[in-house]
Write a protein that binds this DNA or RNA. Structure first.
Lengths: 152, 152
DNA sequence: CATCTAATGATATATTGTAACTTCGATGCT
DNA sequence: AGCATCGAAGTTACAATATATCATTAGATG
């Protein structure tokens, strides 16, 4: 199993965890936010804000504009419900919103599959390198582009 | 001084090093490429392709379209003459184009200043994490967003 | 010179991301 | 109930980033 032992949520359980986390942050869990979260979680790869907007448009039966989705995704990222994959301009649901980890994304350049790894020792080294250079409030972005096992 | 002792180029020396590197790759060092490299190296922060296009337009006295700049920047990145900062959608000249390093960028969210650090041990760990997950041809993207010493 | 190819130009368009302002809906107050 | 308030979401417009396609030009090569 994974190197840390907290629960990995999925489906309804994940949605519940996300709702709890967001409300504990003092934010509302609205229908729109639930719909965006559902859409986000329904993808098996990182999805762009526009992909999500389209999915939500379908599920809602009306056009949802991208900027609404961006607003909500920004909120999700701030509340640790979602992560942004910088090198793909895309978003993924965080499987354990209650835990803070810097995370490492491995992104396949061919198929887009993205796997998520946590390595607190590694990210601690990176944070340390940042503070040594006088940087504060560091937020590491650790991603690896390459080819996944299936695409070799 | 830095933890590795090869020459850090600057100005004409850097340009010469870039030219050598590119021609050794079998690519041509054209006037346009020189102009793009000059523009790139003239910024003290990562610059967007459009910033560079504007700078080159000025230096050339005619309009240079963004796509030409993108083509050349892509070439530069492939040849190790430049790096792309993924989380800023921007490019910087590589100060030592003859050396291959994964690099770490520390980017100030307030002023945009970006410092470049090499830590081969760290990047080796990241590559290792990637291969352990079955990823091949890994190209780490290691960046840290935060606040620089001047902006605290 | 003729030809071939790499480089660049020109144009159009796709994709990603923000800004400004309006409308809606829940809540609390009188 | 009527009304003020405030956060969420809608609407529209636009800015910034990136790519695709085809035409043209400049060098290399024979």
């Amino acid at each position: 199993m994974a190197h840390h032992d907290h629960k990995l949520h999925e489906g309804e359980s994940l949605k519940e965890a996300a709702r709890h986390r967001l409300t504990r942050e003092g934010e509302q869990w609205t229908g729109m936010r639930a719909a965006v979260f559902d859409a986000l979680a329904s993808f098996d790869k990182p999805a762009s804000a526009y992909d999500i907007a389209e999915a939500v448009s379908n599920s809602e039966g009306r056009r949802i504009a991208a900027n609404s989705v961006y607003r909500i995704l920004d909120l999700f990222v701030a509340a640790n419900l979602a992560r942004r994959v910088e090198s793909s301009n895309a978003y993924v649901a965080n499987q354990h919103p209650e835990c803070l980890h810097d995370c490492i994304f491995l992104i396949c350049d061919r198929c887009g599959q993205t796997v998520h790894v946590d390595d607190d020792a590694l990210s601690a080294s990176i944070r340390q390198a940042a503070s040594k250079a006088g940087f504060s409030a560091p937020r590491p972005v650790i991603e690896v582009r390459g080819k996944c096992g299936d695409c070799d």
